[in-house]
Design a protein around this nucleic acid. Structure first.
Length: 574
DNA sequence: GCCGTTTTCGGCCCGACTGTTTTCAGTCG
């Protein structure tokens, strides 16, 4: 999966970090950061571009274009090697220490010779930092606490965990009479795949009371910073929360600001500037007179900037502002568009609920159809057999008359290392729908893996590739394959790619889904449910699809049954 | 280092909070 763009972006990021520690001009640092982002998110692979085409990438100018060319042709950047020689490697690590920015990282290095985290901890212990200019006992203590919390908090949360905490906090604040409005914002509102901390926004005319309610909430364990409008705390579950209280009349501006992303906000502010306006969390105002133009709602603010409201799932500065300015935002798939779930397990294999219960649950979701797709025999631990599959099919057919929705009999096949599948073609032809997934041999070469996937995609019985990269967030990296080649075959073969809704999968992810859609691929947004409750996870799959700009017409389980069956036939009979 | 409806120089997003200052620097989001 590693693209040349990722490799180049990483080098540019390192360049930016080393420049910042070296004390170079901050705008030069930002230029490298911006270029890194631009390259990472550019849909075109940079290794095919000449210097002129590289220069055309917004944020990449002649100097950085030359460095990229140098990296692509020689495998290194001379100036980066020089920088590395000037700045010890350990100092980069110090930038990740919360509370330690480039200036202070450089200060502790130059004045105390500290160039690693262990050395920093030693200096803290010996109370040597307080001897530096600008430091005192309190700043030492804060740094100590921040390092401890970072080590304890560690990884980012899965989105379902964060949503649970956030909804609990919102519910609690809603009961406070001083609170007019309350919601979560930040990366959670944008539905990012993992969440670092929770941003809570409150509108109130009595901010002190609202702040008190938060600080004394049973869910809040300790408060680490508190001003008149802002409060930072940790919940009893160790989740970091930032609360911001604003006046109700600036709700929209604050919501826009705290939803982010940072890059989206910066882009909006630059547009505001060009219009003679200034945008902050307190509203949009004229620069010359400081008179307010808009603040109450997000819609008004976007409107005054010359564009329609942009859904939070798109706010990553990946072209959505440009699209909005041209009134060309995509219509995004929504949960209400989903007519059925096409990847569902039962207790015949590793699901927890019976076939009857899963069918009931799908009916309660008001679905028009559901596909039961238990595991196939080659996933040996699940002990599937031909007989069990056929028996399940018979039961399914007897449930159909009173089911209230169409029951499709399917299976989740195992794509073998050579791309072959469980069961012979004749047996496979008996299913209504087939998902094929990779469950083993995750570390084949990129080339072999691409061939493996393509063979499965081209199989006339396979309709959907399940969790295509097989990643497990926080546990297993995605498998590597030639995404563009695979996507082209999937589009041509009439095989859908899954957007798996499980919070630790979200696979395809947003960026790959967007790339796939550009190649003409269609998608199945499925839950891979192993219990009735898992059907609710569809919201995460839909959010991931939205983040990938996926339109409803490209999602096969928004289609009516007739169209879906035609698609499943892949030009043949079924 | 990048960029241009302020166009080849001179800007570059904006504000809160903390700790150390005695008017501000550093960090964060």
């Amino acid at each position: 999966m590693t693209r040349s763009n990722d490799m180049v972006a990483e080098a540019l990021r390192e360049f930016a970090e080393l420049l910042s520690i070296a004390g170079e001009d901050q705008f030069r640092v930002r230029a490298y950061e911006k270029a890194a982002r631009a390259v990472a998110e550019d849909p075109v692979a940079v290794d095919g571009l000449d210097e002129k085409a590289l220069d055309d990438i917004p944020g990449v100018g002649s100097h950085i274009a030359a460095k990229i060319r140098e990296l692509l042709s020689t495998g290194r950047i001379g100036d980066l090697d020089d920088l590395r020689a000037r700045v010890p490697a350990g100092l980069r690590v110090l930038l990740d220490v919360p509370g330690l920015g480039p200036r202070r990282a450089r200060q502790v290095y130059e004045e105390l010779g500290i160039a690693s985290l262990p050395e920093l901890l030693d200096a803290l212990h010996a109370e040597r930092l307080r001897t530096l200019r600008g430091w005192g006992p309190a700043s030492e203590e804060n740094l100590r606490v921040a390092i401890g919390q970072a080590q304890q908090a560690g990884a980012r949360m899965q989105i379902d965990v964060a949503l649970d905490v956030a909804e609990g906090l919102v519910e609690g604040m809603r009961r406070c009479p001083a609170v007019d409005l309350v919601t979560y914002a930040g990366s959670l509102r944008r539905m990012c795949e993992t969440i670092g901390d929770i941003d809570l926004l409150v509108a109130s005319t009595r901010p002190a009371d609202a702040m008190d309610a938060f600080a004394t909430s049973p869910l809040v364990a300790n408060v680490s910073a508190r001003g008149s409008t802002k409060c930072t705390a940790t919940t009893t579950k160790g989740v970091h929360v930032d609360l911001r209280v604003v006046a109700p009349q600036v709700w929209g501006a604050a919501l826009l600001y705290f939803t982010g992303s940072k890059a989206h906000n910066i882009h909006l502010r630059r547009i505001a500037q060009h219009l003679g306006l200034k945008l902050s969390e307190y509203g949009l105002e004229r620069i010359d007179t400081s008179s307010s133009v808009a603040a109450a709602t997000e819609e008004e603010i976007y409107g005054h900037l010359g564009m329609p409201w942009i859904p939070p799932t798109l706010r990553e500065d990946r072209g959505e502002i440009q699209a909005a300015l041209h009134d060309d935002l995509p219509r995004l798939v929504e949960t209400k568009d989903i007519r059925g779930d096409l990847h569902v397990h039962t207790d015949l294999t590793d699901g927890l609920a019976s076939l009857e219960d899963m069918v009931d649950a799908a009916r309660r979701h008001r679905y028009r159809y559901v596909a039961i797709t238990d595991h196939a025999p080659l996933l040996h631990m699940e002990r599937m057999t031909d007989e069990k599959a056929l028996a399940q099919r018979r039961v399914l057919r007897t449930l159909q008359p009173k089911a209230g929705l169409t029951l499709l009999h399917g299976s989740e096949l195992n794509i073998q290392p050579d791309g072959s599948l469980d069961w012979d073609d004749e047996f496979l032809a008996g299913f209504d729908v087939l998902v094929a997934s990779i469950h083993s041999h995750f570390t084949m070469s990129r080339d072999e893996m691409s061939k493996r996937l393509i063979r499965a995609i081209e199989h006339p019985a396979v309709n959907i590739i399940g969790h295509p990269t097989a990643r497990s967030i926080g546990h297993r990296p995605p498998i590597e394959f030639d995404a563009e080649a695979v996507f082209e075959v999937a589009a041509r073969a009439g095989t859908a790619l899954e957007i798996n809704s499980f919070p630790d999968r979200l696979d395809l992810n947003d960026e790959l889904a967007r790339l796939a859609q550009d190649h003409g691929v269609v998608f199945a947004i499925s839950t891979d449910a192993h219990s009735t409750r898992h059907l609710d996870n569809i919201r995460y799959g839909v959010a991931t699809a939205q983040r990938g700009w996926i339109r409803p017409e490209n999602v096969i389980n928004t289609w009516p049954l007739g169209k879906l069956r035609t698609f499943f036939a892949k030009g043949g009979r079924r």
